Simulated assay, not measured.
Amino acid sequence: MPRPTTKISNYRPAVGIAVFNSQGQVWLGKRFGEKGPHTWQMPQGGIDKGEATETAAARELWEETGIRLHDVTPLGEVQDWLFYDFPLEYRGAKATKGWSGQRQKWYAFRFHGNEKTIDLKSHGPQEFSKWKWAELSEAPSLIVPFKRKVYERLVSEFEHFARPIR
């Protein structure tokens, strides 16, 4: 994915996590308080100052889903940073904190834990109101449009994880 023309330092460093079950489906959460068809996404969040991307991925996974590292096995990662821009109407909003968009490092994991341990309230504030397993190919049509190119890239990068384990 090409880098944006805006300075990289204007993009919030973040991680994204694709969690696959044994059937090859990916974990999607419905954004808390959001309505409409484009409210589902994979866990993602900012990298704290001085934090390694792998550490941030584990932290964000737990904070947003309650899934701990002992419930997953690492599968791989996207080698590049993936970028998206916030729409102009979002810029300047409190949630964007002055960033032009995000640059994300993405990781894939296989879930082998008990689904009953998935806890969307494990850490506040709550990011998701509910969750589901879905086909990876569906994810780009369920995400907000300004993140769609990132999700299309994830489909191509992680499609080999989106198969049932034999």
Rank of each mutant, 00 (worst) to 15 (best):
G76H: 07
V150D: 00
G76E: 05
D48Y: 13
K121Y: 06
L120P: 08
E51M: 04
L69K: 13
T39P: 03
P13R: 09
K149L: 10
Q23P: 02
L61P: 12
V144F: 13
L82H: 00
A162K: 04
I165P: 06
K121M: 03
G29S: 06
L88A: 15
Y90I: 09
I165N: 12
L75F: 05
S122V: 15
D119K: 08
A162N: 09
S22H: 15
V155K: 08
E60G: 06
V144Q: 15
E89N: 14
E34L: 04
F32I: 09
G76A: 10
R68E: 12
A95F: 12
F161G: 10
A134H: 00
E138G: 00
P125E: 06
P87E: 06
K94W: 11
T73N: 14
G29T: 05
R103L: 05
D85V: 00
N21W: 04
W62H: 15
P37I: 02
V72H: 04
P87L: 06
M1V: 06
S141R: 07
E77Y: 08
T55C: 09
F146L: 07
D80I: 02
K105N: 01
G66P: 03
L154R: 01
F146H: 12
W131S: 10
T73D: 15
E54Y: 06
A14I: 06
E157F: 00
Q44T: 08
E54F: 03
S129H: 11
R31H: 13
E54L: 05
P145V: 07
D80A: 08
R166E: 12
K35I: 12
V78C: 09
I165A: 14
Q126E: 13
R153G: 00
E157R: 01
T6N: 07
K132M: 12
W99L: 01
K97T: 14
T96Y: 01
R3Q: 14
